[in-house]
């Protein structure tokens, strides 16, 4: 194992004890990952994901990526476990078994992606190689430039917030968007998602209700819907066009109802639904 890692050539500067810790942590990561894949109890899976994150964090510490480790510990092991648990409570405690056929595709993708990475190993710079491009290019330049440009001891913060602050802004927007998505789709009080779109003020669905049901006779246009109290509902074109005409149509409506006997019931429910 050791020789495999050193094999890529170049001076490996890591000390063996760190390497042992690295290998131990990665071995545990693999074990936990397999446990997560094999497990059916969602509660255990969520907990194991927390464990996985925590071990990742420990591993990042041995790689001297303290900031990343901190984030991983706070987000992965900390709050996301709680969030996953609260989401799990809404679904089920057990995951349904997945057939072998269904898991074949993802397995293939994983194997291919992994094989591709292994394919690249011979040409990779050695682990911890001081002369690798990543350690000599702009990455190293930050180390020298940040001291005078930004004068912040923590280079990670300097890169994150100043040199690549624009990336961080976009990341913030990603998080903002995630929050906005939750607000839009779930709502904060657990009561979102029951509103239904209506074609001209009526509930129809492409499959449940054929379109002919709303194709009402000549004059019975949905503009005649009584305006809902909150501007909630009917997608009627705003009435500013010709209020008089709208009224006239409203007056005509009863007549139209007679011709289309089936119509009124559907329409009434549609109207009510939209008003409430």
């Amino acid at each position: 194992m050791l020789s495999f890692i050193y094999a890529a050539g170049g001076p490996a500067t890591i000390s063996p004890p760190t390497l042992i810790i690295d290998i131990a942590l990665m071995a545990m990561l693999v074990v936990v990952a397999f446990a997560i894949v094999r497990m059916r109890s969602l509660f255990a899976i969520v907990m194991l994901q927390g464990v996985y994150s925590l071990m990742c964090a420990a591993w990042f510490v041995t790689l001297d990526a303290v900031d990343v480790a901190f984030t991983e510990a706070a987000v992965g092991a900390g709050i996301s476990t709680v969030l996953m648990l609260s989401a799990m409570l809404l679904t089920d405690r057990q995951s349904a078994p997945v057939g072998a056929k269904k898991s074949l595709g993802p397995l293939l993708v994983c194997v291919l992606a992994g094989a591709a990475m292994f394919y690249a190993i011979p040409d990779m710079p050695a682990y911890g190689d001081a002369n690798s491009p990543a350690n000599t290019g702009p990455g190293m330049e930050y180390m020298t430039a940040a001291v005078t440009d930004v004068e912040i001891p923590n280079i990670v913060t300097a890169v994150l917030a100043s040199y690549r602050g624009y990336d961080t802004m976009a990341e913030t927007v990603v998080i903002f968007m995630a929050g906005l998505g939750v607000l839009l789709l779930l709502g904060l009080n657990g009561n979102a998602g029951f509103w239904q779109a209506k074609v001209q003020g009526q509930n129809i669905f492409s499959l449940t209700a054929p379109r002919t049901r709303i194709l009402t006779s000549t004059e019975d246009k949905p503009e005649t819907e009584p305006p809902a109290p909150d501007e909630a509902a009917p997608p009627k074109p705003k009435p500013k066009r010709k209020p008089a005409a709208a009224k006239k149509r409203a007056a005509k409506k009863p007549a139209a109802k007679k011709t289309a006997a089936k119509k009124p019931a559907a329409k009434k429910t549609g109207g009510k639904g939209s008003a409430s």
Binding site: A170, E171, V173, V174, M177, A178, L180, G181, L184, L185, G193, W195, Q196, A197
Partner: peptide, 16 residues
Amino acid sequence: EVSSISTYVLVAMGAS
């Protein structure tokens, strides 16, 4: 990511 995440939300809004 910015465009994708917002797109997922936009698509899901078709649920009504």
